[in-house]
Design a binder for these strands. Sequence first.
RNA 1: GGCCACGUGGCGAAGAUAGCAACGCGGCGGUCUGCAAAACCGCAAUGCGGGGGUGCAAAUCCCCCCGUGGCCU
Length: 315
Amino acid sequence: MKSGKYKVIAVVGPTAVGKSALAVELAKRFNGEVISADSRQVYQGLTIGTGKITKREMLGIPHHLLDVASPRGQYSVARYVKEGHRTISEIVRRKKLPIVVGGTGLYIDALLGEMQFPDVPPNPALRKKLAKKSTSELFSLLKKLDLKRAKTIDRHNPRRLVRAIEIARTAKLTPVPEQSSVRGTARNLKRKTDAKSHLYKPLYIGLVVPREKLQKRIAKRLVRRIKGGMIAEVRNLHTSSMSWKRLDSLGLEYRYVAQHLRGLISEKEMVAKLQTEIWHYAKRQMTWFRRNKKIKWFTPKELLEIRSEIIHFLG
RNA sequence: GGCCACGUGGCGAAGAUAGCAACGCGGCGGUCUGCAAAACCGCAAUGCGGGGGUGCAAAUCCCCCCGUGGCCU
C-alpha cells in the first residue's frame, strides 16, 4: 500500500473516565493493539501515581509506549510522534488495528496529524540562559527576533516565549527558503497539517461522565492509589536520585506527594489538594478535546453504540 | 453580669489620617508552534452583621442592638 490511509482508533477523554479499560475491550473485539498517549506513563517507574495499566488488566493485549523513557530525562511531543508513527506502522504490518488511548491531547493531536511542529530541537543551553530573564524581557527579545510570532503569542507565558525564541533564533542562524521557513505563520502550519493528516484516518471516540460522577471517581481512585503504595513510590523515586524539583515538574501526584514527603503539607492537605488539582486537570483536558469537532462522544456505558460506530468506520 | 476584641463575596484576608471594596483559595470559561499531569489567560461573585446618627461623602467616625471569641467577678 503506497499512500496508506491507515485506520486508527483514538480513545480520548478526561482522566479517570475509564479509557484504558475501554481500549482493552475494543482491542479484544477488533483485533487491536493499544498505543498509550500519556506524557507521564512514558516514564519508567512512574507507575502507581500515573495509574499505569497493569499486566493483568491488559488481558493479553499488547500495549505500546509505556515505560519507554527514563524519568530523569525529558521526554517530548516530538519524540512521542516519532515513536508513535513507528509503532503504528508496526501494528498495521501485523494486520492489527492501532488503538491510541490517552489523556494527553497534545500528543494525540500531534501523532494523528492535527498539528505539526517546526523542526527545531530544544536547546538546553539557551533555555538555561533564558530562564534567568523576566517574562517581559523575553517578550521584547522575541519581538526583535520574530515580530510576527510576537503578535500572536501569549506574552505572559515564559515557557512559550522561550520556545518561540528558540525557534526564531534557529531560523535566523540557518536561513531557509521562504516556503519551508520554520518560523511558521499560521498559514504555514496549516498547510503542513493538511499534508500530514492524510497519513491516517482516525476515528475519535470520546468518553465522558457527568461532573459529579467524575469527581467521585477521581476521589476513589486517589484513595486506591494511596493504599496501593503511591507515597512509597514517590519516596523511592526521590531516594533513587530524582530531585524534588524534577518530581514537582511532573505535576499532580508526584508534585503533591513530594510536597508531603518534604513536610510542606500534611497527608490530609495532600489528598485535598490532589483532589482539586486532578479535577482542574480533567477540566483542562476537556477544554482541549472540545476543540476537536471530529470526536464522537459517548458514556462508558454505551459500549454497543461505540462498537457499531467502529464497525461502520472499519467498513 | 462586667471588660476587651472581632463581625468584609462560598472560604481565608487587606482596607493609618472617611472619597470608585486589594489579594489568595475555591467556582466557571479559555489559550496552546518539541517540558503539556506543564505553563499561561479571562470571567463571575445576591459581600462591608442589623438599625440609627454626623459628614458633600462612612467598610472606615459616634450611638444602640445582634452574633462570635477571650478575659474578669
